[in-house]
Write a protein that binds this DNA or RNA. Structure first.
Length: 422
DNA sequence: TCTGGGGTCCTAGGACCC
DNA sequence: TCTGGGGTCCTAGGACCC
């Protein structure tokens, strides 16, 4: 059996944890640049505030209803996420961290008769240790466990936040109550298509045959989905040692950028961040691409376009100075005088383990001292205020930096921002 | 005025090889 | 006059997820 443990309204829950006066009150958290609403407590959902809705469109009702609003505070959420996952690792045999607020658990070692009791224990203990409320779905496959979790979340009082789909009857009941668009792996395009075939519930889809799925539902993906709905596991637990295949750092600018110098500053700053992520997983990249987004808002429509450049590195690397050099060159090649830039990004790909670098005959071996320097910079930036050490190319003006006007303190990762108890 | 950021997996189709 | 078929590798782009 597999379980999914999902934090309820995760970002909003993190904010509420350090501001107990907000308990039982509506809270929302905004995406970067204070653009969209990305997390809502139940009280905010009850007010009809939509997920991913643009903040400026909801501003009025948010103010009228006295909803607490926060800019996203990734230091806080990242650290709370680590605590939740750490708790799960102490309580469960095998944990696969799926996203910042979700983990799959392999419960094959647990006696079937005790599964429900065990799931309740997991929930209560995690909540007690971390202060973050969670919901749990347990079923034979990942897709079914996600479905169970969704139902548990919808009816927290009726289910205690835990739902188990063990018997065929339990599974049938849950599938009948789930519309196709609520199935994990069915997006808006797929749901529309299914509706055309008059397939409306998860139960309808489960009863389609595999050949039909192969033809009409994205080939192997569709077949797998139907099997999973029948309780036949096809999506296995992922090995936690497998590292990322691609690392990206991309941002909208706080305000538009016109000058090459500023555009380069932004791109090289993103490059430094991406390189840091790369070193954290002990990787080295063989490919790097840079893209910039130009706004051609003519007052009638919002219709941005993207220009991108790509470099195959002569030798795989994780060195910030090397990567910054290429990033700056690519940025210059993309730049056109007079354009209005609203976003940029850096993507590192073809990632290999750093101890596996294949040196090119003509390129000089990487200097061991530079690697030591990287390590030192990473350590200092991690323990001190972020980015206290940086490269000159990153600049100091940061006119393009994103808006974060309502960010809470980084309560758990910065000494200067700890909670003060009187 | 203002609409996020970071990932994965799969498929189709082209280039190339024998 | 007649002009194959099977395989691999790579890339771009779509769909989906949180």
């Amino acid at each position: 059996m597999k379980a999914i443990v999902d934090c309820n309204s995760f970002y909003a829950a993190c904010e509420r944890l350090f501001k107990p006066s907000l308990h039982g009150k509506p809270v929302v958290v905004l995406s970067n640049n204070d653009g969209c609403i990305v997390s809502r407590t139940d009280e905010a959902k009850a007010l009809g505030i939509q997920m991913a809705g643009p903040y400026f469109q909801h501003k009025k009702e948010i103010e009228q209803n006295n909803v607490a609003v926060f800019s996203s505070n990734y230091h806080l959420y990242g650290d709370m996420s680590r605590r939740v996952m750490e708790a799960l690792r102490m309580l469960a045999p095998q944990v696969e961290v799926y996203s910042v607020d979700e983990s799959f658990l392999d419960l094959d070692g647990i006696e079937p008769a005790k599964l429900y009791e065990y799931a309740l224990f997991l929930k209560h203990t995690t909540e007690q240790w971390t202060g973050i409320p969670v919901s749990i779905g347990v079923a034979p496959s990942k897709v079914l466990s996600k479905l169970a979790n969704k139902l548990a979340k919808k009816d927290k009082t009726g289910t205690n936040g835990v739902m188990l789909l063990q018997t065929p009857e339990q599974q049938m009941d849950a599938l009948l109550r789930t519309p196709v668009e609520d199935i994990w792996g069915v997006g808006s395009a797929g749901a529309g298509k299914l509706r055309l075939f008059n397939i409306n519930t998860a139960w309808d889809l489960r009863n389609m045959n595999e050949e039909w799925a192969r033809k009409n539902l994205g080939g192997v993906v569709g077949v797998r989905l139907i099997k999973e709905l029948r309780g036949i596991p096809c999506i296995e637990m992922k090995d936690p040692r497998i590292t990322k295949k691609m690392i990206a750092t991309t941002r909208m600018f706080g305000k538009p950028v016109y000058a090459l110098r500023e555009l380069k500053e932004a791109v090289t700053t993103y490059t430094a961040r991406a390189a840091e992520k790369l070193r954290r997983q002990n990787g080295a990249a063989m490919e790097m691409s840079v893209f910039v987004v130009v706004s051609n808002n003519n007052g009638l429509q919002y219709n941005p376009y993207v220009r991108s450049a790509y470099t195959r590195l002569p030798v795989a690397t994780a060195l910030t100075n090397v990567l910054i050099h290429h990033a700056a060159e690519m940025t210059a090649s993309l730049y056109r005088e007079g354009c209005k830039y609203i976003k940029a990004g850096v993507v590192l790909s073809r990632i290999i383990p750093a101890n596996n670098i294949q040196f090119n005959l003509f390129s000089p071996p990487e200097n061991i001292n530079v690697q030591k320097l990287m390590q030192t910079i990473d350590n200092i930036n991690f323990s001190m205020q972020h980015d206290i050490l940086k490269f000159a190319a990153n600049g100091t003006s940061k006119n393009w930096k994103m808006r974060q006007e309502m960010r809470s303190n980084r309560f758990t990762t910065r000494w200067e921002e700890l909670c003060v108890v009187k």
